[in-house]
């Protein structure tokens, strides 16, 4: 019953928006704004075709590889930087500097350094997605409870065991927050990396449509991007619920008290 209710709630606003869009486009004939029916038709004909394998899948592949690499890199570096005060003092100014650089400006530089390749595109995604994960991990590692930490010490947990059983789980809520932030950043950079120099991919295709005035096709590409974002978010939420079950339970108990 509640499941049905939540599905209804989730679908109501999209349905209303589409209805509004339908009414708004039914009379006027604006070349740049297609009707819902036309867009749906183009969506099916453009994306349920070879394009799915030649453009969508490679883009998604680079995005996933980029996100996973950024997470691994961010968590590993965050564990180190968060664990040692001197390393934090040493790296903090430099990190702030690199974090402040808007990643899209790195695209031409990486093109020169790495060449126009999948590796370059993945590097662009990683260069942007690593920061939220890294900084959140550092905060999470620093926030390990002192009593918990002392308990672990009295029971001889040190080194790798300490990281595995104490630091990582304790920082996992913050780490997940960082990964969630990097998802949307990654999607943006995936598109941008394909707009500069590419012969395939979602970003490339959308720009192609734009330049050839294939307006409904362009819009359908944007819809694909939005759908990818929604699906990623759902997958992430589901995973997060699994991994952080203890955390949400704990929070509920604390809030009830």
């Amino acid at each position: 019953m509640t499941a049905l209710k939540s599905v209804l709630f989730a679908l109501t606003l999209p349905a209303l928006l589409v209805a509004f869009w339908y009414i708004a486009t039914s009379g006027a004939k604006n070349f740049f704004i297609p009707t819902p029916a036309l867009l749906a038709e183009k969506f099916v004909s453009v994306w349920f075709s070879d394009r799915f394998f030649s453009d969508v899948l490679p883009s998604l592949g680079r995005l996933v590889i980029g996100l996973v690499s950024a997470s691994v890199l961010g968590i590993a570096a965050g564990l180190l930087i968060g664990s040692f005060r001197w390393l934090r003092s040493l790296t903090e100014p430099v990190l702030e500097f690199f974090r402040a650089i808007p990643p899209p400006v790195l695209v031409p530089i990486l093109m020169l350094l790495i060449g126009v390749s999948d590796l370059m595109k993945v590097a662009v995604i990683v260069s942007a997605c690593v920061w939220p994960v890294l900084l959140n991990t550092v905060e999470g590692v620093r926030a390990v409870d002192s009593v918990l930490s002392e308990s672990a010490r009295t029971y001889g947990l040190s080194g790798a065991a300490r990281v595995r059983y104490l630091v990582l789980p304790s920082a996992s809520p913050q780490i997940m927050t960082g990964i969630r932030q990097s998802l949307s950043v990654g999607l943006i950079l995936m598109v941008i990396s394909e707009m500069f120099a590419s012969s395939s991919g979602l970003g490339f295709t959308i720009v192609q449509f734009q330049r050839s005035f294939a307006i409904p096709e362009m819009w359908s590409g944007i819809v694909v991007l939005g759908l990818i974002g929604v699906i990623m978010s759902f997958i992430f939420q589901w995973t997060e619920r699994k991994i952080l079950r203890w955390y949400h339970g704990l929070r509920e108990v604390e809030n009830a008290a």
């Binding site: 029971y155 001889g156 065991a161 203890w246």
Partner: peptide, 28 residues
Amino acid sequence: MAVVFQEYGRSLFPWMRVRENVELPLKN
């Protein structure tokens, strides 16, 4: 030596079940 702290809520690992909490030092 084993130590039992006053703050029970902060001395057990909230991400582990009761059994795992008791078992962890031995596993280690």
